[in-house]
């Protein structure tokens, strides 16, 4: 009877959640290193959410699918280049690097194209009709769904067989934690791409256009900024970075090429964008790294099964108490 309830709850209280601070401390550096490597992927994807939000005030729910299409693009490039699943390729280093860059290019192009198509097909007609924002979100959800399902029907619900170009190997140790060659590559490459994107937005004329539209669309239009072109540009930049993220993702987790592989990652990247301050490119960068690290601390503290809960709780808490994130909203004010 209900009499059991206290017992169940009490037992549950001891059982199902416990705080292992010792483990948190023990694995602090391990989690930091892993969190930064994984978080750089969040950062790259988060940029797409942030830019589009900054300019259109729209959560591009389908951005996670932009990402996963990039993953498939990279995967099929591997296949096309003659890599086979199962083993680790033994190609010479130079060849491997060239192939990786090729895959990066294909992934970025695939994602960029999907993002652009999405803008054209799903969002632009609505913008023309001056549809309410909720309609945009529903369209985005529908697009996300449709792309996922199309991939699933084309391939199948199971992940593609893994292909790995570089075998992971510990390179050196920081704070007693070994860093693998893949983690280092991914982290540095992501950082470089983010810096390029940042200086593009801050230094070039087109980038200034994006900032101007984000700050005040009407004035920007009056000042001669072509709003449509700016919108297109934000989708393309977001798409390109998501494509890069996709390659880095399958370098770390080669089993991740699967139709719904973008969903959770997309939500987390969005969380990262909100965490740093949505609409703010540097916020996305910061948010991605922070979320990657927090998530790992959380799972050390509470146990592996709580990892995703940690991410969602971070999302909710931030939206409720500081909806403008750490660095504040608005792309326009992103210049520090």
């Amino acid at each position: 009877m209900i009499g059991n309830l206290p017992t169940v709850l009490a037992q549950g209280g001891v059982d199902w959640i416990s705080f292992d601070i010792g483990r948190l401390v023990d694995q602090f550096w391990y989690n930091t290193v892993n969190g930064l490597a994984y978080g750089s992927i969040y950062s790259l994807v988060a940029v797409g959410y942030t830019l589009v939000y900054g300019v259109l005030k729209l959560i591009n729910f389908a951005h996670s699918e932009v990402f996963i299409v990039g993953a498939f693009g990279a995967y099929f490039t591997f296949q096309f280049l003659g890599y086979e699943s199962g083993g680790i390729a033994q190609a010479p280093l130079v060849e491997t690097i060239v192939n990786l860059i090729l895959a990066l290019a294909v992934a970025m192009i695939c994602s960029g194209l999907v993002a652009l198509t999405l803008e054209r097909v799903a969002y632009r007609p609505l913008r023309r009709k001056k549809a309410p924002r909720l309609v945009f979100l529903i369209t985005a959800v529908g697009a996300s769904f449709a792309i996922q399902q199309a991939i699933m029907l084309w391939r199948n619900p199971n992940p593609e067989l893994a292909i790995q170009l570089i075998a992971p190997r510990p390179l050196f140790e920081v704070f007693g934690v070994s860093v693998t060659n893949i983690q280092l590559t991914v982290f540095l490459a992501a950082l470089v791409l983010l810096l390029i994107a940042d200086s593009f937005i801050n230094r070039t004329r087109l980038g200034r256009g994006i900032r101007a539209v984000a700050q005040d669309p009407d004035t920007a239009t009056l000042m001669g900024v072509n709003k449509e072109r700016v919108i297109m540009l934000t989708f393309i930049i977001g798409g390109l970075l998501a494509g890069a993220a996709a390659l880095f993702y399958i370098m770390q987790i080669p089993q991740g090429v699967v139709y719904n592989g973008g969903f959770l990652l997309g939500i987390k990247a969005f969380t990262a964008a909100v965490l740093g301050g949505i609409g703010n490119l540097r916020g996305a960068l910061l948010g991605g790294f922070l979320l990657g690290v927090f998530e790992n601390y959380g799972q050390s503290l509470l146990g592996g099964q709580w990892r995703d809960v940690v991410a969602f709780v971070v999302l909710i808490v931030i939206l409720m108490f500081r909806p403008t994130g750490i660095l504040g909203e608005s792309l326009g004010k992103a210049r520090v």
Binding site: A122, T139, G142, A143, F145, A146, Q149
Partner: peptide
Amino acid sequence: LIFGLALIVLM
């Protein structure tokens, strides 16, 4: 897939 597309077209 159909319902996803339907959402877009309908909106």
